[in-house]
Design a protein around this nucleic acid. Structure first.
Lengths: 209, 209
DNA sequence: GCGTCCGCTTGATCTGCATCAACGCGGCCT
DNA sequence: AGGCCGCGTTGATGCAGATCAAGCGGACGC
């Protein structure tokens, strides 16, 4: 039903997809690539507040602007829908409204999980949690075949912005896990998780799910 | 329209209102008092992920359980609605569904704002931001008359859990702001904000709204 | 082919906050 | 009245992670 109003758009790595305060003329879903949601303080410190993979949604029904930047972490392909047309559709499709609420609540849960990471976890736990999350998400993607090979969609610096560390600490913790034979690097952006159990233990989330 | 299915419930300070994983039999709104949403790691470290004031809502339509604890930070009075009856009402009242989505998005924005605080702010900035938020929220409450008097609804330890510090650091930072004549304490839980401008400057959020 | 830039690693040092510890104050129980 | 307990303050010390700094390798432009 969305067919009639969709258009595609591609954005090169590093480009800003939406800027804080921009009028939100369309909503979109990520088709390929990875995008980040980032909030910056006036002195430049920035914290990533969300990470979008293929099938994730950008834009909030009923809101005319967003208060964070959306940035392409890799080349990104988007499927865009005109916001007004999309909202009309919500009015006539109650099921869609439910689905949107569902998605907002999922994002809220993810944000709260991340608050625990940011507020309470050690550097090692943060890295382990991040890698473990990538492992889970990438297993769902058909594009990537099984095995435990993980591709980092972010630079060390972007990872640092996501988990509330500096890029040096990210680099050191990854090196540690390599030395401990938890990870085996094929190159800077690609590694295999050799010891998944040790990785899970290192996340700090035990006795749960 | 909710009249028919509401009941009241009061909970004493320190009591758990809902435990992680509990079946969610009712939804509720806070009538009086303050409640906290907390997530704990298995070793006891805990991070507060939300703070509920009067008029705030507990419970998520469509979800059968929550993955955090809800705890009464002061004595709390709740207005409870049977979950199933409430959900039936959503089905028949489209306006209500919209309102719930709106609330979920507000919570999401708040969570993301807090991620910046947890990931990037210094202890002083965290305290200043917390106090500033209390000042804003309490000004909206009719119960509290104007002036810049703030009542802390939380112990030092609970504040620490909220902003990702230890109770000692919270205490020290409050003492500093007292010494700097930004705050004047009437007692441990009650103070006046003498220098609102300095407080704002200390939050680290400048050049924004 | 050579310089340069970007992303990354690794080492040395610094520092903000955690941790450990002692004590003060007020409320409540007996 | 006396003792205890919960909450808060303040001081001394320790340490995880930030900051500062140097160097490496691959991609790219000229």
């Amino acid at each position: 039903m969305l067919e009639g109003i969709k258009t595609y758009r591609t954005v090169a790595v590093g480009q800003t997809i939406l800027r804080r305060g921009d009028p939100l003329n369309y909503v979109a879903s990520v088709v390929a690539g990875v995008a980040t949601l980032e909030k910056s303080m006036s002195d430049g410190r920035t914290q990533m507040v969300g990470l979008l993979f293929p099938s994730d949604f950008i834009g909030r029904p009923g809101r005319r602007e967003i208060d964070f930047d959306v940035i392409a972490a890799t080349d990104v392909t988007l499927c865009c829908f005109d916001r007004v047309a999309f909202e009309r559709l919500i009015g006539t499709t109650p099921h869609l409204a439910e689905r949107l609420l569902e998605m907002a609540l999922d994002e809220l849960d993810a944000a709260r999980e991340w608050m625990v990471l940011l507020g309470r976890k050690t550097a090692r736990e943060k890295i382990a949690t991040f890698v473990h999350m990538l492992l889970r998400r990438q297993r769902l993607e058909p594009a990537v075949e099984a095995g435990s090979v993980v591709v980092l969609p972010l630079t060390r610096e972007a990872i640092a912005r996501y988990i509330g560390l500096t890029l040096e600490t990210v680099s050191r913790q990854l090196s540690m896990m390599k030395k401990e034979d938890i990870l085996r690097f094929e190159d800077n952006r690609r590694f295999e998780v050799i010891d998944v159990a040790a990785l899970r233990r290192a996340t700090g989330d035990m006795g749960e799910n």
